[in-house]
Each structure stands twice: as structure tokens, then as C-alpha cells.
């Protein structure tokens, strides 16, 4: 019987796909399954022109001449599953996004359709519009609840900097109340961003501004995406605030996506430093893996490879690696989500 084609890129990446058709990495002699909790499906036409330009500039020539074609290949559910296969990742989580002025819109319906198409490979996070909250907020919460009732929709995605609402604005706390009531964790983008049109003031990026919401909703799990990383200056940013919040509140989890990419961490030093700090602080059991892919072809696998390297440099044990790459996700979202 011939070997599956995806074993080849896995082997090239130093990754070992599991036996019996599984996926994962070989870390220190231990096979570990991988769940990538941060992936963006999309529709090129729903992305604002400035962001299209930004994304196109990240593609290699000549793919950057027709970024719409490239994007459609990797941003569809089929394209993302292909990227998961290439990277040795078993399960991926698709994020809905409603940020029409910055990164664009990926609707709940788009995510639901992707999850329905690949129910064994994809899960979904729903989101909502907040740009007309005073008059449309109630309706948006109802729509969010409906979306979360769909099969495979396991959490809520928010990005204050992209969506232009303050982290400490109690007007929006109803989102966290809903999340707690439904038992759906909330993922929050923290730190700055290099996308055009982002709100870069601390109230939109600094996770310290989330503390009132975290404290007021102990039943809600808050996942601090990107660990407050400074994507503009490629610096570690507000990591210590994230660590402090995780120590202080048992409902805080940490997610290290994108910050270890070649573009965000050109020296390759920040990612292992961050993982080492988290290990030293005894917070590895709060760390959930995500890549922020697919971005460009091959990124999902490349980020996993960089994560493995960073874990080795941060002296993670095999148990630590398992906790980061899939164990903590299964703990938070339930065993069924990790199957």
C-alpha cells in the first residue's frame, strides 16, 4: 500500500504523522496529536481593499499578482483542511470575524458550512457585529446564540482592536454573560496588529483592560490570543500582564498564535522566550495551541514546526508539549471536540 502523499511534507518538516491515519508531531520520542485552535476561513471579496493589499504583500511573487486566486485556494474549508493535512494537524478551529473596517468579514454561516463539510476535522467559533451596538446589540446576541447552537460551534471570537470596541466597556459584557451561560469559551485578540485600520490604543490591545470582564464573569473562559504580543514592533509586549491575569484568574487561558511566525519574530528569539516564561510561571496547563493560519500556503505546517523548535528551546517536556498542542484544548472544550 502506498504511503499517503501528506507523509512527505510531514517528514520534510521533521514531523511525524501518526500511525493509522492520525496526525501529529514526534516530540522527544513521543507522538502528540495536534489541534490548531486559530484558523481564518474567508472570502477575498469580503476583505477591505487596504487589507487585501496588506495580505497580497505577504504572498510571494507571482502569487501576489493574483492574491484573490491564492487566497481562495487556502481560505476555503477544503483549502484549510489541505493545509492541516500538509502540516500534520488533525483538528482545526475556524473563526468567524466581523471587522468590516479592518480585516473584513467571515460570517458565522461561512464557518458553519465549513464545519458541516468536514465535521471530523473542523470546529467553529462564532462572532458578531458590534459596530451598531446601541441599537443592534440585542439582535446580535440572539444571532450569536443561534450560531452557537449549530453543531461544532464551540466558542466565540472577539478582537477589540479589529472591531473597534474597548475591552473594558461594560456595554459589551453581555457577550461574556452569554458565553458563560452556554459554556462557550471566548477567544480575544490581545496586543497590537499590523493590519490597516486597527485601533492601537491600550484600551483595545492591552489585556489589562480585560480584567473587569474576566473578574465579573468567572464562569466564562477567556482565551487571551497572541499573549499581548506587539506585532508592530515585533516585541513581546504585554506578556507579563497575560501571565498575571492567568495567575489571578482560573478562567484565563493563553494562546500563542502568529507571534512566532517569521514575520512577527524575525530573530526567532521571542517565541522561545515567551514559552519559557510560561513554563517558568507554571502556566503550561493554560496554554492552547493556535497558528492564526492559513495566511499563505504552507503556513500552518511551518508554524507548527516553529512551535516545536520553540518548545525544544524552552525545554518543554513531552507532557508540556502535549498539553500545549492538544491536551489543554481537549480539557477546555471537551474530549469530543478533540476527536
Amino acid at each position: 500500500m502506498s504511503r499517503p502523499w501528506w507523509l512527505i511534507p510531514c517528514a520534510l518538516l521533521g514531523l511525524t504523522c501518526g500511525e493509522g491515519g492520525g496526525y501529529g508531531v514526534d516530540y522527544d520520542g513521543t507522538w502528540i496529536p495536534v489541534i490548531d485552535m486559530h484558523l481564518h476561513p474567508g472570502d477575498w471579496d469580503a476583505i477591505p481593499p487596504e487589507t487585501q493589499t496588506f495580505l497580497a504583500s505577504r504572498f510571494p511573487f507571482p502569487l501576489n499578482l493574483r492574491p484573490d486566486r491564492t487566497a481562495d485556494q487556502v481560505l476555503s474549508a477544503t483549502g484549510i483542511v489541505g493545509e492541516l493535512d500538509r502540516g500534520g494537524v488533525h483538528v482545526g478551529v475556524l473563526f468567524a470575524v466581523y471587522a468590516p473596517r479592518t480585516v473584513g468579514v467571515a460570517t458565522n454561516e461561512l464557518v458553519e458550512a465549513g464545519v458541516a463539510e468536514y465535521p471530523k476535522r473542523l470546529l467553529g467559533f462564532a462572532s458578531l457585529r458590534v459596530d451598531d451596538w446601541a441599537s443592534a446589540g440585542e439582535g446580535e446576541l440572539d444571532r450569536l446564540e443561534e450560531a452557537l447552537a449549530e453543531p461544532g460551534m464551540v466558542g466565540i471570537k472577539l478582537a477589540h482592536a479589529h472591531m473597534h470596541f474597548r475591552m473594558d466597556d461594560p456595554s459589551y459584557f453581555g457577550i461574556y454573560e452569554l458565553a458563560g451561560r452556554l459554556g462557550k469559551p471566548v477567544y480575544l485578540h490581545t496586543g497590537s496588529s499590523s493590519f490597516p485600520g486597527i485601533a492601537l490604543e491600550p484600551a483595545y490591545t492591552d489585556p489589562a483592560y480585560l480584567e473587569p470582564a474576566i473578574a465579573a464573569h468567572p464562569q466564562t473562559i477567556f482565551i487571551l490570543g497572541h499573549l499581548g504580543y506587539d506585532f508592530v514592533d515585533h516585541e513581546i509586549g504585554e506578556l507579563e500582564t497575560c501571565i498575571e491575569l492567568a495567575h489571578k484568574y482560573g478562567n484565563v487561558y493563553l494562546e500563542p498564535s502568529a507571534l512566532g511566525s517569521e514575520g512577527a519574530d524575525p530573530s526567532g528569539e521571542n517565541y522561545p522566550t515567551i514559552l519559557r516564561r510560561i513554563r517558568e510561571e507554571g502556566l503550561v496547563d493554560r496554554l492552547i495551541y493556535g497558528s492564526d493560519g492559513p495566511q499563505s500556503p504552507g503556513f500552518v505546517g511551518e508554524y507548527l514546526e516553529r512551535t516545536v523548535t520553540a518548545m525544544e528551546r524552552a525545554e518543554y517536556s513531552a507532557d508540556d508539549a502535549r498539553a500545549l498542542l492538544s491536551g489543554n484544548f481537549i480539557k477546555v472544550f471537551g474530549a469530543e471536540a478533540g476527536q
Partner: peptide
């Protein structure tokens, strides 16, 4: 070709 080097990678 390396178009717009070094800002952009090329195939």
C-alpha cells in the same frame, strides 16, 4: 527572478 527584493519572496 526576485521581484521587489528583498521585501518579497519569489517563486
Amino acid at each position: 527572478t526576485w521581484v521587489d527584493a528583498p521585501a518579497t519572496a519569489a517563486i
